[in-house]
Design a protein around this nucleic acid. Structure first.
Length: 662
DNA sequence: GCACATGAGCTTTTT
DNA sequence: GCTCATGTGC
């Protein structure tokens, strides 16, 4: 096993005398280092798996880490081993220590749109963009461990001052709902450990060795949490690459790399510079591009691979043609090289770009998977259902109460809710609790009271059953009781209702199976729902082209990569150009390039629709910065007229026939 | 007082 | 294309 490891990798794995930082270039085997180190700690050092935690930033990375650890450890993740995201670890801590955080263990986790709505509710401001900006500001403060009092001092513009005024009430509102936002999942444990040394010690003794993936993406709060957990022992390995820092917008600070050296003077720094992933031409393009950035640590990636295919740059007429070209190219390439669909990835800057790509892939009968998945939980029908689940778990969750009681419509509208809300506000109780108070009879008229209490009783009955019956049966009964399917078909056109209902079926089926597999009831499932992404389940088996944002692609690799929309204004994004944040965009491009093993195709559009108007685009400066060893495709051949498309269709058909025959 | 229909505006990246 | 915001009928 060790035979596959190079010298620096072995050093990184075997070094256990103190804190270490592994600077791992793209494709240099950093996941291999982390997973082998876990195996080493357990097998060679005799550490109990329950005392080890590997922390990642995304669910996807956590899942891959688990699979690879299992691969090293005889097919199973060792019992008790923690491999999860920062936020999932935060949830675990806050749930277990809920009373110290003044929360009940069944607190709700709010997502981005919930928190924006809370800000809007507090300000009674209909301007959603402004609410969003203020929530953004508050989130930034929380990530930087800035209190409401400090925020008031720091605020240097009108919006920030307004947000500072809101901040404290925002926090009070969350607590009143017995809810936390994503930022709390990090900052609450930090505060907990600040205030309760004995709790901190307990966790330090539980998690005796920490491995942190993508360290360059930690924000201040996450770093503080890491320090609390690592304590003076400093038993941790942080793995990161400053060239792949792409989360500054979320408060990540590459300075944390420097800070680590300051705070742990004995920090052992190990560099991994041999790239195992990409052919030389791709690696050279990546190196040449990233050389345009100021470097924090000097690092030079090299590879033993051959030169490989030339990187291609293709200009397309517009985004439709771009998508069409990519789809045709995949079909043709697959036929020619006898590859699998899952060997291909299409990467893009923004989620909205996925739509056109999806359309074209469907047109050309190419199977695909979209990673990211968050958007699935953002769909109205899924949020409807989650509102019920959240309410079952935590009846103080007023946001969930309002959404559930009004969806589907059951004769309760704004008027009723306003009356109930103002009564609940006077009594300082949740909407749900107010429903059953005697005083509610004065606040509401007889019909309103009856309807509201009927709903309350309905929820109570479900709650009673939720801890006693299998999740799948309860979900079925819930859907039947609220007549969700009928409601969808009554007020939407059949196609839309069909699609929404099918999403609901997917979600319910998935949740039910998960409950049965893990032996969890509905309440327990709901506790983790905000943090998991459902699309994690099927990607290993399914043969489809991978669609992902550049951010979501980090940590993954593909034989053949298509990087689309590489234009000024998109990559680098206009807002980054305006704010002079080009370097992070360049790193994003670097991440995209370094995903590719064998071939890299870059496309850009001469015209792109921005809202209604189509506007003329320039190729991204990054294309030039990659150096001259690229093949620029002739523009005429890129307009996929019927000939190209026809050829692709035939190729596709033949591939299908071939598959059927043997 | 409530539900439904139409229209406008918006899209950077994630937990 | 998809959500939210506002106006009209029951």
């Amino acid at each position: 096993m060790s035979a596959h490891l190079n010298a620096p990798q072995r050093d990184a794995i075997h070094y256990l005398d103190g804190p270490s930082l592994v600077l791992a270039g793209a494709g240099s085997g950093k996941t291999r280092v982390i997973t082998h180190k876990i195996a080493h700690l357990i097998n060679a050092c005799g550490l109990n798996p329950a005392n080890i935690a590997a922390i990642t930033f995304t669910n996807k990375a956590a899942k891959e880490m688990q699979e690879r650890v299992a691969g090293l450890m005889g097919g199973r993740v060792p019992g008790g081993l923690t491999v999860c995201t920062f936020h999932a670890l935060g949830v675990k801590i806050v749930r277990q220590e809920a009373k110290h955080c003044r929360l009940k263990p069944q607190f709700s986790i709010l997502d981005a749109s919930d928190t924006v709505q809370i800000v809007a509710d507090i300000t009674r401001d209909a301007d959603k963009a402004r609410s969003k900006a203020m929530q953004w500001q508050i989130s930034g403060w929380k990530n930087a461990m800035v209190t409401p009092e400090q925020a008031a001092q720091l605020a240097d513009n009108e919006l920030a001052s307004a947000a500072a005024l809101l901040y404290a009430e925002y926090e009070r509102t969350l607590r009143a709902y017995q809810a936390v936002d994503f930022d709390d999942l990090i900052s609450l444990p930090v505060r907990l450990f600040d205030e309760h040394p004995e709790v901190r010690e307990r966790w330090q003794n539980k998690l005796r060795y920490l491995l942190v993936d993508e360290y360059q993406d930690t924000n201040r709060a996450q770093y503080t949490l890491l320090r609390h957990l690592a304590g003076v022992r400093g038993a941790f390995t942080a793995v990161g690459d400053d060239d792949q820092a792409i989360y500054a917008w979320r408060g990540a600070d590459v300075e944390n790399l420097k800070l680590l050296q300051q705070d742990y003077p004995k920090l052992k720094v190990i560099k991994l510079e041999q790239n195992y992933r990409s052919s030389k031409r791709i690696l050279t393009a990546a190196n040449t591009l990233i050389a345009n950035n100021e470097k924090l640590f000097d690092k030079r990636l090299w590879s033993e691979h051959g030169a490989g295919e030339q990187v291609t740059v293709t200009a397309c007429r517009d985004a439709e043609h771009e998508a069409e070209w990519v789809a045709s190219k995949i079909n043709a390439h697959k036929f020619e090289h006898r590859t699998k669909f899952s060997d291909y990835a299409v990467l893009y800057r923004g989620n909205h770009q996925a739509r056109l790509i999806e359309q074209q892939l469907r047109n050309q009968k190419i199977p695909y998977v979209i990673s990211g998945g968050q958007s699935f939980f953002d769909k109205a029908e899924i949020r409807d259902l989650i509102a019920y689940l959240r309410l079952l778990m935590n009846e103080d969750d007023d946001l969930a109460f309002i959404r559930a009681i009004t969806t589907p419509r059951r004769g309760i509208g704004a008027g009723t809710l306003e009356a109930l809300g103002s009564y609940a506000g006077r009594r300082h109780v949740s909407l749900f609790a107010a429903t059953f108070e005697e005083g509610a009879a004065q606040a509401l008229n007889a019909r309103q009271l009856e309807q509201v209490q009927e709903f309350g009783n309905f929820i109570n009955r479900l709650q009673y059953r939720a801890t006693r019956e299998p999740a799948s049966r309860l979900l079925e009964d819930l859907l039947a009781a609220i007549r969700y399917e009928a409601w969808l078909f009554e007020h939407l056109d059949p196609r839309e209702a069909e699609s929404k209902w099918s999403n609901v079926r997917d979600f319910v089926g998935w949740l039910g199976r998960k409950g049965d597999e893990d032996g969890k009831n509905l309440i327990e499932l709901t506790q983790t729902i905000a943090l998991i992404s459902m699309l994690d389940k099927n990607d290993s088996e399914f043969d489809g082209v991978q669609l992902a944002t550049l951010h979501a692609s980090k940590g993954l690799e593909f034989k053949h990569v298509f990087l689309v929309g590489v234009e000024e204004g998109l990559l680098p994004h206009q807002s980054s150009i305006d704010e002079d944040k080009i370097e992070e965009e360049r790193r994003l491009m670097y991440v995209g390039i370094t995903r590719a093993q064998r071939s890299l195709n870059i496309t850009w559009c001469e015209r792109r629709k921005a809202g209604k108007e189509a506007r003329t685009c320039e190729p991204s400066r990054f294309i030039e910065e990659m150096g001259g060893d690229v093949k620029v495709n002739d523009r005429k051949s890129n307009v996929p007229v019927s000939k190209e498309e026809g050829r692709a269709r035939i190729a596709n058909l033949m591939a299908m026939l071939e598959g059927r025959g043997g």
